[in-house]
Structures are given as C-alpha cells and as structure tokens.
Design a protein around this nucleic acid. Structure first.
Lengths: 80, 80
DNA sequence: ATAATATTTAGACATTTGTCTAAATATCTA
DNA sequence: TAGATATTTAGACAAATGTCTAAATATTAT
C-alpha cells in the first residue's frame, strides 16, 4: 500500500469487482507487473481473488481496511 | 508503515514526544537501525525531528496520518 | 484435438528496506 | 580544550519490491 499502483487498484475495486484483465488495462504497465501487484495485495489480505471460468475476479476485503482504519484512529482521537 | 518497528515507534510517540535515544532503547535493535527507521518515517512525513541541544526530539505529524485516514474512509463509507 | 483468450509463473535485473559494526559529528561539561 | 554523551553517517549485505520479456497454464470455442 506504499505503492501508487496498488492504491489505484484498490480505488478501482472500490466501486465494483473487476477481472485481472480489466484492472491491468487501466495501467501503462505490463500485465505480469499488474499481476504481481495483485499478488502482493492478496498476500496482504487486502483483496480476494475468485476464479470464474477463464476470468479471475478481484474484490476488496474491507476487513483489513477496517483494521487499518481503526489503528489510524488511535492517533486522531487523542488530538492532544 | 509496513514495518512493525515503525508502527511501534508511532505508537510510542502517540502519547508524548521522545528523543531518539528514548525511542531506540525500547527496541532490541542497534541504534543506527532505529535511526534509519526514524529517517524513513521522517521522509514519509509521518514524524518531525527537532534538535534541542544534544538531543533530537521526535513527534508525530498528524496531518499525514489524517490524510491516510481520509483515504481509507473512502472504502468503509461505501459499505456496498 | 486445436486454436484463441485470460492470467500467472519464471527468470532477470535495478532499487528500496532492514539490519549490522565502525566511524564521524555535534553538543555539553569539567 | 578534552572528554563524555547523543545521534547520525558510511559501508556492507541479505531480502523484498517493481519492472520487464518470454513461457507456461487454464479455460473456452471451433
């Protein structure tokens, strides 16, 4: 999530689930590179991949996002 | 912020500002390593360093934290 | 069974992290 | 000015990222 490409992927998935191809074509980058970013997001638990026929649909796992949000809130709550 | 050490540093700084040394002694790690993490946090705009005499005080920059929080909220708001 | 489509894996290579020890720099104190 | 204290810089090295091209795998359609 340090990475701009990965953040953008998450933004794309915010509205609707997408196939690997639909995601990849948004970027000016080779498909294997995008696939690699998807792999990292998957490993981090931020997205889920589901194979449907020859397509692979990706969607956001909000659970992990919510945890990050909760962690971050520690810092704003305590406005000091 | 991927890194556990850096997250822990931020948690330490949540309550009070600390010197580099006070931070470093919390970790089972060489001081230069901690210094390196502080450098990365500084570069990311997450902390601010202020030199006072021979000490360097570190504090959190909540601005960047707030931006991250705002970004993350995009995802929970739209509960789908 | 073969060809076409969708996606990932493999292998390469440069950059960034994460860690260390040793040395340098800056400040305070005697 | 010398010595002590606080912190960073330098240089090394392994692991993780970020990117590519070429090849492999899986699924669908002919």
């Amino acid at each position: 999530m340090n990475d701009a490409t990965r953040r953008e992927i998450l933004e794309l998935l915010r509205d609707r689930d997408l196939t690997a191809g639909q995601i990849a074509e948004q970027f000016n980058m080779s498909w294997p590179s995008v696939s690699h970013h998807l792999e990292l997001l998957k490993r981090a638990g931020l997205v889920v991949a589901v194979k449907e026929g020859q397509y692979v649909f990706y969607s956001i796992n909000t659970t992990v996002m919510d945890e990050m949000l909760k962690w971050l809130m520690q810092f704003t709550k305590k406005k000091k």
